Computed example of a mutant assay.
Amino acid sequence: MESKIEDIVNMCAPCQATRHESAHAPVHWWETTKNPWSRLHVDFAGPFQGKIFFIVVDSFSKWLEVFLVKSTSSQSAIKPLRSLFATHELPDERVSDNGTAFTSDELKTFMQDNLNRHIRCAPFHPSSKGQAERMAQTTKDFLKKTPEWQDIDLRLSRFLFNRHITPHTSTGRSPAELMFKIQLKTFFDKIHSYELPTAKHEIGREKSFNDGDPVWVRNYSTGPKWVPAKINSRNGPISYAVELDDDERIIKRHLDQIRIRHVAEGVMT
């Protein structure tokens, strides 16, 4: 009886047309890329908050790029891709769905000219689009948490910077480290590592002065080109306040405008 029921249901057109989806197939794991910028996953996202975004993800490093675009046309994909190719290099593969922009002759010609292979995903099947789909959702989730009155470019820049410096769960390393083999400096890195830089002599030795050191300083008023003075204080990375010997005035001079003055047995040389 069960077999007969199955046969009847299989022959019933309305039943077949309205049945639930079949069990999901096992998730397709993309072949692991061995180098940065080899395989790119691309997708459009939106309209969201009245904006359309073009998403590009490097499968190796998880480096993310998000562009504000006017439409989902081929040109809206070609323009940011051309900019990225000029910055990073030509990739080997591009993964996208079968959207009109990605299958157009215009984009196909552009990719062929750049020797880039196109891998297509199944339509209406977000999971097969992989990383671009997930990053598009991550981008939208972030924008939802920020006030819409803020400038969209500012919000995207902050989001992308945080993504680039944060270790990814699948790699354990930041996208910047895998992409460029460097750690991007953050605001806190610059605070902790800040030191006053020192200038160099022409012969390569560090040039700096201590308070009270006798020096020659460049004179820009009447009289000699160089006049005697002494260091009063350092007031910047490469500038000093100096006290003139003749009238005890304190003036400011750049490091390049100060020379060592040797004093021996009370005679200046």
Rank of each mutant, 00 (worst) to 15 (best):
E2C: 09
K4Q: 11
E6W: 01
V9E: 11
M11L: 14
M11F: 05
C12L: 02
A13M: 07
C15E: 10
R19F: 01
R19S: 05
E21I: 09
S22V: 12
A25C: 02
V27H: 12
V27N: 08
W29Y: 03
E31G: 01
E31S: 08
T32G: 00
T32C: 03
K34G: 12
P36F: 01
W37K: 01
W37H: 03
W37I: 01
S38K: 07
H41G: 06
V42N: 02
D43M: 06
F44N: 04
A45Y: 06
P47L: 07
P47W: 07
F48P: 02
I52Q: 10
I52E: 08
I52D: 06
I55F: 06
S59I: 00
F60M: 05
S61E: 05
V66I: 13
F67S: 15
V69Y: 03
S71Q: 06
T72F: 00
A77R: 02
L81G: 08
S83D: 10
L84A: 04
L84Q: 04
F85Q: 02
L90S: 06
L90F: 10
R94E: 12
F102A: 07
D105T: 14
K108D: 15
M111V: 03
M111P: 00
Q112H: 11
D113P: 00
N116I: 15
N116S: 13
C121E: 03
A122H: 08
A122G: 01
M135R: 07
M135E: 11
Q137G: 04
Q137R: 15
T139E: 01
K140A: 08
L143R: 05
K144H: 14
K144Q: 14
T146R: 11
P147K: 14
E148H: 10
W149K: 11
L154Y: 15
R155K: 13
S157K: 14
F159N: 02
F161Y: 13
N162G: 07
R163C: 11
R163D: 04
S170H: 01
S170D: 14
R173M: 12
L178I: 03
I182F: 03
H192R: 14
E195C: 06
L196H: 12
L196S: 13
T198S: 10
T198G: 03
I203A: 11
E206A: 11
F209Y: 15
D211V: 15
P214L: 08
W216M: 11
R218W: 10
N219C: 04
G223Y: 05
K225I: 08
K225P: 05
P228T: 06
A229H: 06
K230N: 12
I231L: 08
S233Y: 03
N235G: 10
N235M: 06
V242S: 04
E243G: 00
D246G: 00
E248D: 04
I251D: 10
R253Q: 04
L255S: 07
D256H: 06
Q257T: 01
I260L: 13
R261T: 03
H262L: 08
V263T: 14
A264W: 04
E265L: 11
